[in-house]
C-alpha cells in the first residue's frame, strides 16, 4: 500500500479519528473515569447506532448529488408501522419489523421514481413526501406512545455481543456492507459514477436514472434499519420519533467528508463523525450544559467543514490550472 496516497485520500477520516480519540480521552480524564463505567459506556454506544445509520441513509443520496429531507419522516412512519402492527394487530415481531423495513424501502423507491420521472431535484420531492409521511405518522400513533408490544423486543435491543450492544453491531455490519457495496460492486460504482460526472457515466453505458433510483431506494432501506434499531432500543414509539433526524443525518456525512456535489461516499468518515457528534452530546451531559449547545456546536462545525472543503477544492483546482498554463 502506498502510504502517502493513503494519507492523502483519507485525511478527513484520519483527523476525525484523532479528534474522536482525543475528545474521548479528555472526557474520560475530566470525568474522573465515570465515562468508563459499564453503564455510561453502554449508554454512549447504544445511542450511537441510529446516528450512524441515518447518516448513511443521507450519504447514499448525497452520493448522487441530491438530498433526502424525508429521512426523519420515513423513519418515524416505519417505526410507527412496526409498533402498531405488533401492539394492535399482534403480528409476530419479525413480520412487523420486515413490513416496516419494506415500507421504508418502498417510500425510498417512490422518491427515486418521482425524481427520475419529474426530473426535479430530490430536495423538493422529498419535502413533499416528508409532509405526507408526517401525516401518516400522526394518523398511526395519534398522541399516544405505543409500547404494548412483546417484551422480547426490548430484550433484543439490550443484548450485548462481546460487550458491544447488539444494535451497534447491526449498525457496524450495515456500514461494512455499504462500504463494500460502494467500493466493490459494479452497481455501487455505477451510482458513484453518476454522481461524479453524469455525462461521462452515460457515455460509458451507465443508466443515470437507474443510479438515482437505486440511491433513493437504498436510502429508504437504511432508514428502515434505523427504524428497527429505534424500536428495539426505545421504550415506546410516538409521533416525535424521527423529528430530530434530519439535521443529524446531514451532519455525520458532511463532517465525515462527503461532498455535497456528489460522486463520493465516506462510510468510515460518517461513522466516526457520528461518534464525534455523540461525544459533544456526552460532554454536554457531563458539564450539565443546555441541550441547545449541541446543535449550536454541530451547526457551526458543519458550516466550517463545508467551507473548508470548498476552499480546498478550489485551491487544488487552481493548482491544476496552473499546470495547464505551464505547458
Amino acid at each position: 500500500m502506498n502510504f502517502k496516497l493513503f494519507f492523502k485520500h483519507r485525511a478527513t477520516e484520519l483527523s476525525l479519528t484523532i479528534i474522536f480519540v482525543v475528545g474521548f480521552a479528555l472526557l474520560v480524564a475530566t470525568s474522573g473515569g465515570v465515562l468508563l463505567t459499564r453503564q455510561s459506556l453502554q449508554g454512549f454506544l447504544t445511542y450511537l447506532a441510529v446516528p450512524i445509520v441515518i447518516g448513511m441513509a443521507q450519504m447514499v443520496v448525497l452520493a448522487i448529488g441530491q438530498m433526502n429531507l424525508a429521512v426523519g419522516a420515513m423513519g418515524g412512519v416505519s417505526a410507527a408501522i412496526m409498533a402498531v402492527l405488533m401492539a394492535d394487530h399482534h403480528l409476530p415481531i419479525w413480520l412487523a419489523l420486515l413490513i416496516g423495513f419494506l415500507s421504508a424501502t418502498a417510500v425510498g423507491a417512490i422518491n427515486g421514481a418521482l425524481v427520475v420521472i419529474t426530473q426535479l431535484n430530490g430536495f423538493i420531492i422529498t419535502l413533499g413526501t416528508m409532509t405526507i409521511l408526517l401525516g401518516f405518522q400522526y394518523r398511526l400513533v395519534r398522541t399516544f406512545t405505543v409500547d404494548s408490544y412483546p417484551k422480547s423486543l426490548p430484550d433484543f435491543g439490550n443484548k450485548n455481543i462481546l460487550g458491544f450492544p447488539l444494535i451497534l453491531v447491526i449498525a457496524f455490519v450495515t456500514s461494512v456492507l455499504l462500504s463494500l457495496f460502494f467500493s466493490r460492486t459494479v452497481t455501487g460504482r455505477q451510482v458513484l459514477a453518476t454522481g461524479g460526472n453524469h455525462i461521462a457515466a452515460r457515455l460509458s453505458g451507465i443508466s443515470n436514472g437507474r443510479s438515482v433510483f437505486i440511491a433513493h431506494t437504498l436510502s429508504g432501506s437504511l432508514v428502515g434499519i434505523a427504524a428497527i434499531i429505534t424500536i428495539s432500543s426505545l421504550p415506546g414509539i410516538n409521533r416525535s420519533i424521527g423529528g430530530d433526524w434530519m439535521l443529524a443525518s446531514f451532519a455525520a456525512p458532511i463532517i465525515g467528508g462527503v461532498l455535497m456535489a456528489g460522486g463520493t461516499v465516506a462510510v468510515f468518515g460518517t461513522v466516526v463523525a457520528a461518534g464525534v457528534v455523540r461525544l459533544v452530546d456526552i460532554a454536554r451531559a457531563q458539564y450539565s450544559l443546555d441541550p441547545s449547545i449541541v446543535s449550536l456546536t454541530v451547526g457551526i462545525v458543519v458550516l466550517s467543514t463545508v467551507a473548508l472543503s470548498e476552499w480546498r477544492r478550489r485551491s487544488s483546482q487552481r493548482a491544476l490550472e496552473g499546470k495547464k498554463d505551464a505547458k
Binding site: F250, S295, L296, L303, A307, E310
Partner: peptide, 23 residues
C-alpha cells in the same frame, strides 16, 4: 464567500440558531 450552496449554509445555520434560541 465560501461558494457553498445555499441549501447547506442555511441548513447549518438553522442548526446553529436552533441551539442559540433555546439556550
Amino acid at each position: 464567500k465560501s461558494q457553498v450552496n445555499a441549501f447547506i449554509v442555511t441548513l447549518a445555520m438553522d442548526f446553529a440558531l436552533l441551539g442559540f434560541v433555546t439556550f
